[in-house]
Design a protein around this nucleic acid. Sequence first.
DNA 1: ATGGCTGCTTTGAGCAGA
Length: 258
Amino acid sequence: MKLATWNINSLKMRLGRVLEWLTASATDVLCLQETKLEDATFPRLELEAAGYGCVFTGQRTYNGVAILWRRELGEASDVVAGLPDFADQAARVVAATIAGVRVVCLYVPNGQSVGSDKYRYKLDWCKAATAYLRQVIAAHASLAVGGDFNIAPEPRDVHDPALWEGSVLFSEPERALFRRWVELGLVDAFRLFEQPPNTFSWWDYRMLAFPKNHGLRIDHVLLSPALASTCTLCRIDRNARKGEKPSDHAPVIVEVAT
DNA sequence: ATGGCTGCTTTGAGCAGA
């Protein structure tokens, strides 16, 4: 199974790009973040016509997550939206079981700046996510968590770690929360393999960040130990950041056996 | 060349993203 995660920064703007990329990359399951669509306007029929099933939870303007999959894989089961035990107005989590794999799609809050109310919300949200992931790990041996985590785990995930030290996306409390998820048993699929240095998943639209490769690796696929033991590839498709009207994020792709 | 923000919103300046 090829499974990927991609913050698409408006699915309305980029549905065509998503469909082209799904076909070209032969992706089986895709987690999307920042769809920015209410459920009533989600392009379910277009996706089904193209051969993909979808589950989603969304809202106007902000947030919104979805999981798409090739319909040959069958139906999704046990669809759950949101974090249990966390009152959240934002649509940031959706989960489903597809072809025997529990797939959790996350959009972690950005946090805006260290010390802000939004940063506090990010830390609280991540603590609730930790409790949720602990439950999901206990219930599902075959688990993939794909998402925009808005956390760069290590200095090598940041183009200029000295510049970013202490900033939102790379502050120590955020990195500590990411380590908690690894301590629960989740495996950062990207680090299972030797990777080209300076591989990132997000580049600011401003300041020529992409051509200068001034990026961060903040989008991740975390795997349960059983699924990680079958993982044969993890890479970031930098090419998807090119061309007309790209998202500011590139997809992260894994291959696992099911 | 991959190029100097983008998408969204009570349509137009301000917010949010990261």
